[in-house]
Amino acid sequence: MGVIRFDNVGRVFGAKSNPFVALKEIDLEVGDKEFVAIVGPSGCGKTTCLRLVAGFDFPSSGKVLVDEQPIRRPRPERAVVFQQFALFPWKTVHDNIELGLRNQSVAKAEREERINRILELMNLTAYAKHFPHQLSGGMQQRVAIARAYVLDPDVLLMDEPFGALDAQTRVVMQEELVRLARRNPRTVLFITHAVEEAVYLADRVAIMTRAPGRIKEVLDIRSIREAEDWDSYEKIEDVMDLESFVHLRTHIWRSLREEKAAATA
């Protein structure tokens, strides 16, 4: 299981005399094995939402629940993929992926089996003995995804995971993530400011407003994706050409632009 629920969540930073309201009245539910993307302008608090679920941060008001349980600390059941990869530079690819399994006291033979399986799935088998700095950005992020996926988490939290990659690598990673997510579904909370990415990957897209961050609108992508059979297209550009895709993308763009106009007005 892995149901995430934000129940009237608020988060205030800074001193009482000079508070900064990062999140206000956030209500959102991410169903089991559902892929939800949060898009919003930078500084809208979307990363804060993810950190609350990860257990790196805690709400000032309201509740964040996973399977109806409040979150007390980070747990491997809620694995995180960071924008800057956050791989351990002194550990090889293999050892980076292995750490979480060792922490769970998985026996050596099973560890190796699971590591080999995930390395193969992520096309990393040849790089097991490499150090992170010997790999490209895309490869490093693959290792980070492998490190999270190998733990078989209930919830996968991805914080702009492709934000640090170049455009071409990014597309390849998006396609791979779709394949991975469809074959091996998990509850995913995906943070991004890239609209196309959100529409392409997610079952639902939540649009956030600028500070104080609220959820303005939640769009159902899945029903359209299934009706139009997006997954039958192999390449992202073919999907991005579809009228249904363009329509959704434009809708989100407009919604975000209104935000921007409101902020600068």
Partner: peptide, 20 residues
């Protein structure tokens, strides 16, 4: 972020000290 990564992987204190 490395500390957060270690914590999210469920790394116990002694291992955070020696391996991170």
């Amino acid at each position: 972020r490395l500390i957060e990564a270690a914590r999210m992987l469920g790394t116990p204190n002694h291992r955070v000290i020696t391996e991170i």
